[in-house]
Design a protein around this nucleic acid. Structure first.
Lengths: 122, 122
DNA sequence: AACTTATTGCAAGTCTGTTGCAACTACAAT
DNA sequence: ATTGTAGTTGCAACAGACTTGCAATAAGTT
Protein backbone atom coordinates (compact mmCIF):
# COMPACT_ATOMS: atom_id res chain seq x y z
CA UNK A 1 0.00 0.00 0.00
CA UNK A 2 1.75 3.11 -1.26
CA UNK A 3 0.82 6.71 -0.46
CA UNK A 4 -0.64 7.05 -3.95
CA UNK A 5 -2.94 4.09 -3.45
CA UNK A 6 -3.94 5.24 -0.03
CA UNK A 7 -4.90 8.65 -1.31
CA UNK A 8 -6.80 7.19 -4.20
CA UNK A 9 -8.77 5.01 -1.81
CA UNK A 10 -9.47 8.00 0.39
CA UNK A 11 -10.74 9.94 -2.60
CA UNK A 12 -13.16 7.14 -3.42
CA UNK A 13 -14.38 6.77 0.14
CA UNK A 14 -14.59 10.51 0.52
CA UNK A 15 -16.72 11.10 -2.52
CA UNK A 16 -20.24 10.19 -1.65
CA UNK A 17 -21.67 8.53 -4.65
CA UNK A 18 -19.80 7.70 -7.80
CA UNK A 19 -16.55 9.16 -8.95
CA UNK A 20 -14.79 8.98 -12.28
CA UNK A 21 -11.13 8.23 -12.83
CA UNK A 22 -10.51 11.82 -13.79
CA UNK A 23 -12.21 13.14 -10.68
CA UNK A 24 -10.08 10.85 -8.54
CA UNK A 25 -7.01 12.07 -10.36
CA UNK A 26 -7.83 15.73 -9.85
CA UNK A 27 -8.83 15.23 -6.27
CA UNK A 28 -5.64 13.43 -5.27
CA UNK A 29 -3.47 15.81 -7.26
CA UNK A 30 -4.57 18.70 -5.13
CA UNK A 31 -2.59 17.16 -2.29
CA UNK A 32 -0.08 15.14 -4.27
CA UNK A 33 0.63 16.92 -7.54
CA UNK A 34 3.10 14.46 -8.99
CA UNK A 35 0.53 11.69 -9.25
CA UNK A 36 0.21 10.26 -12.71
CA UNK A 37 -3.09 9.39 -14.33
CA UNK A 38 -1.94 5.93 -15.28
CA UNK A 39 -1.39 5.20 -11.62
CA UNK A 40 -5.04 5.95 -11.03
CA UNK A 41 -6.12 3.55 -13.75
CA UNK A 42 -3.77 0.83 -12.59
CA UNK A 43 -4.86 1.26 -9.01
CA UNK A 44 -8.51 1.09 -9.97
CA UNK A 45 -7.90 -2.18 -11.73
CA UNK A 46 -6.20 -3.57 -8.69
CA UNK A 47 -8.96 -2.41 -6.38
CA UNK A 48 -11.56 -3.95 -8.64
CA UNK A 49 -9.72 -7.27 -8.67
CA UNK A 50 -9.52 -7.19 -4.91
CA UNK A 51 -13.23 -6.41 -4.74
CA UNK A 52 -12.73 -3.18 -2.82
CA UNK A 53 -14.37 -1.07 -5.46
CA UNK A 54 -17.06 -1.52 -8.06
CA UNK A 55 -17.38 -0.01 -11.46
CA UNK A 56 -20.50 1.33 -13.13
CA UNK A 57 -20.88 2.54 -16.67
CA UNK A 58 -23.31 5.42 -16.48
CA UNK A 59 -23.43 5.77 -20.22
CA UNK A 60 -21.55 9.04 -20.48
CA UNK A 61 -18.44 7.56 -21.98
CA UNK A 62 -16.53 7.21 -18.77
CA UNK A 63 -16.70 4.68 -16.04
CA UNK A 64 -17.46 5.54 -12.44
CA UNK A 65 -16.42 3.87 -9.24
CA UNK A 66 -17.63 3.55 -5.73
CA UNK A 67 -16.34 1.75 -2.71
CA UNK A 68 -17.77 -1.72 -2.37
CA UNK A 69 -18.18 -1.34 1.38
CA UNK A 70 -21.39 0.63 1.08
CA UNK A 71 -24.48 -1.44 0.67
CA UNK A 72 -25.27 -2.23 -2.93
CA UNK A 73 -27.41 0.20 -4.72
CA UNK A 74 -28.44 0.77 -8.27
CA UNK A 75 -28.76 3.73 -10.51
CA UNK A 76 -31.53 5.21 -12.56
CA UNK A 77 -29.90 7.36 -15.22
CA UNK A 78 -32.11 9.87 -17.01
CA UNK A 79 -31.05 10.06 -20.62
CA UNK A 80 -32.63 13.49 -21.03
CA UNK A 81 -31.28 15.50 -18.11
CA UNK A 82 -28.45 13.17 -17.11
CA UNK A 83 -29.47 13.08 -13.47
CA UNK A 84 -28.73 9.92 -11.54
CA UNK A 85 -31.12 8.56 -8.94
CA UNK A 86 -30.26 5.87 -6.48
CA UNK A 87 -32.34 2.80 -6.14
CA UNK A 88 -32.28 0.48 -3.20
CA UNK A 89 -31.19 -3.07 -3.56
CA UNK A 90 -34.45 -4.83 -2.79
CA UNK A 91 -36.09 -3.69 -6.00
CA UNK A 92 -33.74 -5.86 -7.96
CA UNK A 93 -33.36 -8.84 -5.71
CA UNK A 94 -36.49 -10.64 -6.99
CA UNK A 95 -35.03 -10.34 -10.46
CA UNK A 96 -31.66 -11.66 -9.31
CA UNK A 97 -33.38 -14.65 -7.72
CA UNK A 98 -35.31 -15.38 -10.85
CA UNK A 99 -32.22 -15.20 -13.04
CA UNK A 100 -30.48 -17.63 -10.73
CA UNK A 101 -33.32 -20.15 -10.61
CA UNK A 102 -34.35 -19.98 -14.27
CA UNK A 103 -31.00 -19.49 -15.97
CA UNK A 104 -28.37 -20.40 -13.41
CA UNK A 105 -27.03 -16.91 -13.96
CA UNK A 106 -25.48 -15.23 -10.95
CA UNK A 107 -26.10 -11.60 -11.75
CA UNK A 108 -23.64 -9.10 -10.41
CA UNK A 109 -26.05 -6.42 -9.38
CA UNK A 110 -23.49 -4.21 -7.77
CA UNK A 111 -22.97 -2.28 -10.92
CA UNK A 112 -26.30 -1.72 -12.47
CA UNK A 113 -27.48 1.32 -14.34
CA UNK A 114 -30.95 1.51 -15.79
CA UNK A 115 -31.53 4.14 -18.45
CA UNK A 116 -34.75 5.93 -19.15
CA UNK A 117 -36.52 9.21 -18.49
CA UNK A 118 -37.05 10.57 -15.03
CA UNK A 119 -40.32 12.01 -13.84
CA UNK A 120 -39.24 15.60 -14.48
CA UNK A 121 -38.38 15.05 -18.12
CA UNK A 122 -40.70 14.65 -21.12
CA UNK B 1 -32.11 6.31 -48.52
CA UNK B 2 -28.71 5.91 -50.16
CA UNK B 3 -27.05 2.64 -51.18
CA UNK B 4 -24.72 2.97 -48.21
CA UNK B 5 -27.58 3.25 -45.77
CA UNK B 6 -29.44 0.41 -47.38
CA UNK B 7 -26.45 -1.87 -47.10
CA UNK B 8 -25.85 -0.86 -43.52
CA UNK B 9 -29.45 -1.69 -42.69
CA UNK B 10 -29.13 -5.04 -44.44
CA UNK B 11 -26.03 -5.81 -42.44
CA UNK B 12 -27.90 -5.14 -39.21
CA UNK B 13 -30.94 -7.17 -40.21
CA UNK B 14 -28.72 -9.92 -41.56
CA UNK B 15 -26.68 -10.33 -38.39
CA UNK B 16 -28.75 -12.28 -35.97
CA UNK B 17 -28.13 -10.77 -32.62
CA UNK B 18 -26.03 -7.74 -31.93
CA UNK B 19 -23.47 -6.24 -34.18
CA UNK B 20 -20.83 -3.63 -33.53
CA UNK B 21 -20.10 -0.61 -35.69
CA UNK B 22 -16.85 -2.14 -36.81
CA UNK B 23 -18.54 -5.38 -37.81
CA UNK B 24 -21.08 -3.46 -39.84
CA UNK B 25 -18.29 -1.55 -41.49
CA UNK B 26 -16.36 -4.68 -42.44
CA UNK B 27 -19.43 -6.49 -43.57
CA UNK B 28 -20.62 -3.74 -45.90
CA UNK B 29 -17.12 -3.08 -47.19
CA UNK B 30 -16.88 -6.56 -48.60
CA UNK B 31 -19.46 -5.51 -51.15
CA UNK B 32 -18.88 -1.79 -51.20
CA UNK B 33 -15.23 -1.11 -50.45
CA UNK B 34 -15.34 2.67 -50.63
CA UNK B 35 -17.60 2.97 -47.62
CA UNK B 36 -16.22 5.18 -44.92
CA UNK B 37 -16.40 4.37 -41.23
CA UNK B 38 -17.84 7.75 -40.36
CA UNK B 39 -20.77 7.00 -42.61
CA UNK B 40 -21.50 3.97 -40.49
CA UNK B 41 -21.43 6.00 -37.31
CA UNK B 42 -23.57 8.75 -38.78
CA UNK B 43 -26.04 6.27 -40.17
CA UNK B 44 -26.32 4.49 -36.86
CA UNK B 45 -27.12 7.76 -35.18
CA UNK B 46 -29.83 8.47 -37.70
CA UNK B 47 -31.30 5.00 -37.33
CA UNK B 48 -31.31 5.36 -33.58
CA UNK B 49 -33.10 8.70 -33.80
CA UNK B 50 -35.65 7.18 -36.12
CA UNK B 51 -36.10 4.28 -33.71
CA UNK B 52 -35.17 1.66 -36.28
CA UNK B 53 -32.28 0.37 -34.28
CA UNK B 54 -31.38 0.09 -30.62
CA UNK B 55 -28.05 0.34 -28.95
CA UNK B 56 -26.68 -1.78 -26.14
CA UNK B 57 -23.44 -1.38 -24.28
CA UNK B 58 -22.23 -4.88 -23.61
CA UNK B 59 -19.37 -3.68 -21.51
CA UNK B 60 -16.56 -4.53 -23.92
CA UNK B 61 -15.78 -0.94 -24.77
CA UNK B 62 -17.86 -0.80 -27.90
CA UNK B 63 -21.52 -0.39 -28.46
CA UNK B 64 -23.65 -2.95 -30.28
CA UNK B 65 -26.79 -2.56 -32.32
CA UNK B 66 -29.76 -4.59 -33.29
CA UNK B 67 -32.79 -3.87 -35.35
CA UNK B 68 -35.68 -2.60 -33.28
CA UNK B 69 -38.19 -4.64 -35.22
CA UNK B 70 -37.50 -7.76 -33.22
CA UNK B 71 -39.35 -7.93 -29.97
CA UNK B 72 -37.43 -6.40 -27.12
CA UNK B 73 -35.09 -8.66 -25.38
CA UNK B 74 -32.39 -8.27 -22.82
CA UNK B 75 -28.92 -9.59 -22.42
CA UNK B 76 -27.15 -11.57 -19.78
CA UNK B 77 -23.45 -10.97 -20.27
CA UNK B 78 -21.07 -13.40 -18.60
CA UNK B 79 -18.04 -11.48 -17.40
CA UNK B 80 -15.93 -14.64 -17.28
CA UNK B 81 -16.46 -16.22 -20.69
CA UNK B 82 -18.00 -13.22 -22.44
CA UNK B 83 -20.96 -15.19 -23.74
CA UNK B 84 -24.22 -13.33 -24.19
CA UNK B 85 -27.56 -14.93 -23.41
CA UNK B 86 -30.87 -13.51 -24.41
CA UNK B 87 -33.59 -12.92 -21.93
CA UNK B 88 -37.21 -12.45 -22.79
CA UNK B 89 -38.95 -9.22 -22.04
CA UNK B 90 -41.43 -10.39 -19.43
CA UNK B 91 -38.75 -10.99 -16.83
CA UNK B 92 -38.13 -7.30 -16.62
CA UNK B 93 -41.59 -5.89 -17.04
CA UNK B 94 -42.53 -6.19 -13.37
CA UNK B 95 -39.44 -4.16 -12.58
CA UNK B 96 -40.34 -1.56 -15.19
CA UNK B 97 -43.82 -1.23 -13.70
CA UNK B 98 -42.43 -0.80 -10.23
CA UNK B 99 -39.97 1.87 -11.34
CA UNK B 100 -42.81 3.74 -13.01
CA UNK B 101 -45.16 3.59 -10.06
CA UNK B 102 -42.63 4.19 -7.27
CA UNK B 103 -40.28 6.64 -8.96
CA UNK B 104 -42.11 7.96 -12.01
CA UNK B 105 -39.15 6.68 -13.98
CA UNK B 106 -39.90 5.37 -17.44
CA UNK B 107 -37.14 2.84 -17.93
CA UNK B 108 -35.95 2.22 -21.44
CA UNK B 109 -35.59 -1.50 -21.27
CA UNK B 110 -34.75 -2.00 -24.88
CA UNK B 111 -31.11 -1.73 -24.19
CA UNK B 112 -30.42 -3.60 -21.07
CA UNK B 113 -27.40 -5.70 -20.28
CA UNK B 114 -27.04 -7.50 -16.99
CA UNK B 115 -23.56 -8.65 -16.04
CA UNK B 116 -22.66 -11.65 -13.97
CA UNK B 117 -21.46 -15.22 -14.27
CA UNK B 118 -23.25 -17.78 -16.37
CA UNK B 119 -23.99 -21.28 -15.20
CA UNK B 120 -20.96 -22.75 -16.98
CA UNK B 121 -18.45 -20.46 -15.33
CA UNK B 122 -17.09 -20.52 -11.76
C1' DA C 1 25.10 -3.78 1.13
C1' DA C 2 23.43 -6.34 -2.73
C1' DC C 3 19.60 -8.39 -4.79
C1' DT C 4 14.89 -8.97 -6.02
C1' DT C 5 10.33 -7.46 -6.76
C1' DA C 6 6.76 -4.18 -7.11
C1' DT C 7 5.24 0.46 -8.19
C1' DT C 8 5.55 4.85 -10.28
C1' DG C 9 5.99 8.57 -13.82
C1' DC C 10 6.52 9.57 -18.38
C1' DA C 11 5.72 9.39 -23.14
C1' DA C 12 3.87 7.20 -26.77
C1' DG C 13 0.31 4.48 -28.45
C1' DT C 14 -4.65 2.29 -28.93
C1' DC C 15 -9.18 2.22 -29.71
C1' DT C 16 -13.77 3.84 -30.48
C1' DG C 17 -15.98 7.36 -32.01
C1' DT C 18 -16.62 12.57 -33.75
C1' DT C 19 -16.19 16.70 -36.59
C1' DG C 20 -15.07 20.21 -40.27
C1' DC C 21 -14.99 20.58 -44.82
C1' DA C 22 -14.95 20.10 -49.65
C1' DA C 23 -16.80 17.21 -53.25
C1' DC C 24 -20.63 14.74 -54.87
C1' DT C 25 -25.54 13.48 -55.70
C1' DA C 26 -30.49 13.89 -56.32
C1' DC C 27 -34.15 16.57 -57.05
C1' DA C 28 -36.73 20.80 -57.92
C1' DA C 29 -37.41 25.39 -59.75
C1' DT C 30 -36.48 28.49 -63.25
C1' DA D 1 -30.68 22.55 -69.85
C1' DT D 2 -28.97 25.35 -66.09
C1' DT D 3 -29.07 26.79 -61.61
C1' DG D 4 -30.12 26.24 -56.95
C1' DT D 5 -30.65 23.76 -52.75
C1' DA D 6 -30.46 20.31 -49.37
C1' DG D 7 -28.73 16.26 -47.94
C1' DT D 8 -24.93 12.68 -47.95
C1' DT D 9 -20.36 11.00 -48.43
C1' DG D 10 -15.25 10.42 -48.02
C1' DC D 11 -11.27 12.12 -46.14
C1' DA D 12 -8.31 13.58 -42.74
C1' DA D 13 -7.65 15.44 -38.56
C1' DC D 14 -9.11 15.35 -34.01
C1' DA D 15 -10.93 13.98 -29.23
C1' DG D 16 -11.27 11.49 -24.99
C1' DA D 17 -10.54 7.65 -22.11
C1' DC D 18 -7.76 4.50 -21.28
C1' DT D 19 -3.29 1.24 -21.93
C1' DT D 20 1.41 -0.10 -22.36
C1' DG D 21 6.61 -0.28 -22.57
C1' DC D 22 10.23 1.08 -20.11
C1' DA D 23 13.52 3.17 -17.22
C1' DA D 24 13.86 5.10 -12.60
C1' DT D 25 12.58 4.71 -7.95
C1' DA D 26 11.17 2.57 -3.68
C1' DA D 27 10.41 -1.26 -0.56
C1' DG D 28 11.37 -5.37 1.27
C1' DT D 29 14.76 -9.71 1.70
C1' DT D 30 18.70 -12.21 2.28
Amino acid sequence: MTPQRLMILEAIEGAEGHISAEEIYESVRRRYPSLNASTVYRTMEMLKDRGLVTETDMGDGRVRFHSAGNEHHHHLVCSVCGQVFDLSEELLSPLAKKLASDYGFRADLQHMAIFGRCKNCP
